[in-house]
Design a protein around this nucleic acid. Structure first.
Lengths: 147, 147
DNA sequence: TAAGATTGAGCCGTCAATCTTT
DNA sequence: AAAGATTGACGGCTCAATCTTA
């Protein structure tokens, strides 16, 4: 494996964080204007809902590809806002388990229509549907290829 | 234009910030391990070198798609580290002009081999060259399509 | 020793306000 | 009024250390 990336790889790399920052900024601005919290909250809550049961913080970390301390502080805020609850973990005394509260479920339901519309506006409208599929596929390579 | 994005658009959106965060984190970790500063520094310096002349902060903002205050603080650090110099702007008394110093040029030259190798490892190695081209093209849609 | 999780300190980006010049 | 740029206060992420249990 060479140390010299192709020109195409360099260009793709240069655009990747920029495109992510622009889209994320635009979508978060929409949500904020509608009175909603940052997307990190949504990501955690939706993960809990998908699981259908309380999760360990370490499971959330792996799913969202976030660092331990980042998740820990995110959970601080979510708990303070009443969306989740930390419970002792029966299976492992070191750990805890994070339970989704009804308030968190309600937040997910309230946010989704605005979030969905913002995705349509800032992502969907800029890509044909075959382009969107292709983009998802290529990003998947970056996410799932082993180092 | 609909408020309902396609499933493909939703998936592409979900992966975009995650892929960017993973790649950025991995590349910055490599650079940091080699004793180099964050990539934001490189981005600003390379923009100044490409221009071949001092730039206004507002030009840097537009090129890097960053906010005014973000660039202002980045320039604080770059100036404190001796890589750039703020000069008064002759054409517009409100503004300034940012000049690249030899130390900044030297940092660019020193960083590039490590940076390039890290791009190859974390981006190039995960995409075939036609995939890299395609990814760059699709990200371009997200970046350059009007709102 | 290693793994799950938290915490204090510090850095960086953001918000809102401000200043100067156009 | 509007545009370029900066600044104090603050929120959130990161680093390194720490604690507890496996």
């Amino acid at each position: 494996m060479t140390d010299i990336p192709s020109e195409a790889a360099i260009l793709a790399w240069a655009r990747l964080p920029r495109a992510a920052r622009i889209a994320l900024g635009a979508i978060e601005a929409d949500l904020k204007a509608a009175g909603f919290p940052p997307l990190g909250w949504y990501d955690v809550l939706v993960e809990l809902r998908r699981a259908g049961k309380p999760l360990r913080p370490v499971e959330i970390e792996r799913q969202l590809l976030l660092a331990q301390h980042t998740v820990s502080r995110l959970l601080d805020r979510l708990e303070a806002a009443g969306h989740v609850e930390r419970q002792p973990c029966e299976a492992d005394g070191r750990g805890q388990v994070i339970a989704l509260k009804p308030e968190g479920q309600a937040l997910l339901r309230a946010m989704w229509p605005a979030y969905r519309a913002s995705i349509a506006k800032h992502v969907g409208a800029k890509l044909g549907s075959s382009d969107a599929e292709e983009l998802a596929r290529l990003l998947g390579h970056l996410l799932f290829e082993p180092n």
